[in-house]
Design a protein around this nucleic acid. Structure first.
Length: 502
DNA sequence: CAGCAGGGGGCGT
DNA sequence: CGCCCCCTGCTGT
């Protein structure tokens, strides 16, 4: 298949969403997805919306018309209708299916005649949507969502291709939904973007243009078969379709051109478009496959390693070693004892695959982390799924050693427990006689001299962001973001803002 | 304010 | 795979 490389990556990303990370490489993932999409199963089992990381990726995306699941969730339907979608016909009880001959024409008369294109998008093999000339509406072939051209194109790209084609012109934020970017612009940059006079939401993404042109050709063909391909929408028309104005240039000239790697995958539309591997769930991108694989484990919540002294679990072996050298320096460190499970079991399944069987995945959303959920590591025997991702900073009650004992261990090993300490290296302040154990301590100490956190409403300066936040709250009755200069009117507004930092 | 542990990314091997 | 670096959150002073 032409453009197989791109589709391969696309398929790989779908594979991640399909919770098939046991595949040892993207090639295998692609094969699996191809089998799912076009093989005997015939319908995808997209579960990206079930992934906690996916849910946290963006509050705007959370407001997106789709919940990320192939089936329309209740709120997704409501959002769709809010966006101008008529209620999807037969959505209740319908099952997913790709376009087939049997679904080309509906038996309910001419008014319900949904016609598909004879061509398919080369890089996906999908026919995207069918068109009903009577209703002048498109219907997604994968989930039967119904809407106008731009909406269905946006829906398909965002839901079934998982692409974020709309880019904030002022920051790296991108979304699959134009209105989400408009909302982001309004909230974060105080730019009221009506969709008619906005500042370039249409990301430089030939895929959007390709899909839109594809649907337009389908529409033209059905409504005016004799003039097909004449009314292929221009770039300006496309921008109008999506309510955007300033589109970048150099879009794909060939309508069937294979999308570039950077634009064909969501990560390619992130702030690091040149990276080869881009995470579906967060903005992370890298050129190294091994780093990407390691990063993916973060979103899988697996902790295959554990400290054999205190049973604390880790997702990386080097973290176990670092922990061990910090906390249990009196014990001999044995690399062979830190793995909770062998890398491969007798069936050749990886550790992760073992615990992410379809049954496991089905119950995964119920194990989403919530406030107050604390993992008692000692109660989880080896061989059981790792706990939900712990809330950062909440330390589970470990069986041993108790906190005081840990501190005693630290105190005992002070001065020699790390290479840093071994070398007696100290980081000295240039303004005073202070010296610290690491560079970060020095940085933080320097803030006491420099006070880089300046209140935007008065002359107050603070050495720490939390101090400034306290000041802003007490003096100005506003909620300050610890990561940027945002000031919220109340905690709810700040909470919404903080989600964007995810 | 500073020490500390945990976690994530980059990089070399 | 392991090391180093950086950052964050928690905790004690």
């Amino acid at each position: 298949m032409e453009g197989g490389g791109t589709l391969q990556e696309w398929g790989g990303r779908r594979a991640v969403m399909d919770a098939l990370p046991a595949m040892d490489c993207y090639e295998d993932m692609f094969k699996e997805i191809t089998r799912k999409l076009y093989g005997e199963e015939g319908l995808p089992d997209v579960t990206e919306g079930d992934h906690p990381s996916m849910r946290a990726q963006s509050d705007y995306d959370g407001e997106s018309p789709e919940g990320g699941h192939g089936a329309l969730a209740a709120f997704g339907l409501a959002a769709l209708m809010q966006n101008g979608f008529p209620p999807p016909p037969g959505m209740f009880g319908h099952h997913h299916h790709l376009q087939s001959e049997s679904t080309k024409y509906r038996p309910s008369g001419g008014e319900d005649k949904w016609v598909s294109s004879e061509e398919t998008l080369q890089w996906t093999g999908s026919k995207i949507a069918t068109y009903n000339a009577h209703q002048k509406l498109f219907r997604c072939t994968e989930c039967e969502c119904v809407g106008f051209l731009s909406r269905v194109a946006e829906h398909w790209l965002g839901t079934h291709a998982n692409l974020r084609v709309f880019q904030c012109p002022q920051c790296p934020y991108a979304s699959a939904w134009a209105r989400c970017v408009r909302m982001h612009l309004q909230r974060q940059h105080n730019v009221v973007d009506t969709g008619e006079n906005n500042s370039g939401l249409w990301k430089e993404n030939p895929v959007l243009e390709e899909v839109t042109k594809y649907l337009q050709r389908l529409k033209n063909k059905i409504e005016s078969p004799s003039v097909q391909n004449v009314n292929t929408p221009s770039t300006t028309q496309l921008k109008t379709e999506f309510g955007v104005s300033s589109a970048p240039q150099n879009h794909g000239q060939n309508q069937n051109s294979t999308p570039s790697r950077s634009s064909a995958q969501p990560g390619g539309t992130e702030n690091t478009p040149s990276k080869r591997y881009c995470c579906t769930f967060c903005p992370y991108a890298t050129d190294r496959r091994d780093l990407f694989t390691r990063h993916e484990n973060i979103h899988r919540d697996e902790k295959p390693f554990q400290c054999y002294v205190c049973q604390k679990q880790f997702n990386r072996a080097d973290h176990v070693k670092k922990h061990f050298l910090r906390m249990h320096r009196d014990h001999p460190y044995d690399l062979n004892r830190i793995r909770r499970q062998p890398p491969k079991n007798s069936n050749g399944m990886s550790y992760y695959n073992k615990y992410t069987s379809p049954q496991q995945n089905a119950t995964r959303p119920q194990s989403l982390p919530t406030q107050g959920q604390i993992h008692h590591g000692l109660n989880i025997p080896a061989g059981f799924p790792p706990p939900p991702p712990g809330i950062r900073g909440v330390k589970p009650p470990l069986p041993s050693p108790p906190k005081m004992q840990q501190n005693g261990c630290n105190a005992k090993s002070h001065g020699s427990k790390t290479a840093k300490k071994k070398g007696e290296k100290r980081y000295s302040c240039c303004y005073c006689a202070w010296s610290g154990v690491d560079n970060w301590c020095l940085k933080r100490h320097l803030n006491t001299h420099l006070k880089p956190f300046v209140c935007g409403l008065c002359d107050y300066k603070a050495a720490r962001s939390e101090r400034l936040a306290t000041h802003v709250l007490k003096v100005h009755n506003k909620r300050a973001c610890g990561r940027c200069s945002f000031l919220g009117e109340d905690s709810a507004q700040l909470a919404i803002h903080m989600q964007e930092h995810q």
